[in-house]
Amino acid sequence: MDISIQDVTKTYGDKLALPPFSATLKEGEIVCLLGQSGCGKTTLLRLLLGLETPTAGTITGLPSRISAVFQEDRLCPAFSAVTNVSLALGRRVAKPQILALLKSLELGDALKKPVRELSGGMQRRVSIARSLLCPADLYVMDEPFKGLDEDTRKTVMDAVLDRTRGKTLLVVTHDPEEAGYLGGRIIRM
């Protein structure tokens, strides 16, 4: 089902966080959101994730299963990468699958370490793995490749494309090259 965003705005008091915005995300489509800082990209994602309600406008067609990579990693720092991923998935995904994806994202040496001991880039990959393993119809990712080095970024982007095939993928990015690599439709805010 397509997701329709109609004249959605969000204000916090007097502050306009998201000016009127409309778009349609087709089912199974890859969409990259580009725009300057502060233009409301993250706010739009928060609205799609149900973390905020729009001040005006409507969002229809949202699937019940949505997965996310937040702008921050949002990992439980005391627990390992495996525990962090398992926490979000419950029993929906078997442990070998979790281990396989983490290893494919070059996290094989860091599976059992508390994530607070991992580098920023490694934590980012754990956050992405958590999102990719979560069965969903819409994947929402807020600057997911931020902080990754050039080689790792390509590996991770390939994993994202592979794991979200056939599902709707909405990626916020500042980098037109990233948008080009992902190969989807670009919306400028």
């Binding site: 994730l49 973390l51 997965s67 996310a68 937040f70 921050e72 949002r74 439980c76 926490l87 979560c134």
Partner: peptide, 10 residues
């Protein structure tokens, strides 16, 4: 709060 939002989304 960010971790709690993560819990809500997942």
């Amino acid at each position: 709060k960010e971790l709690l939002e993560m819990g809500q989304v997942f």
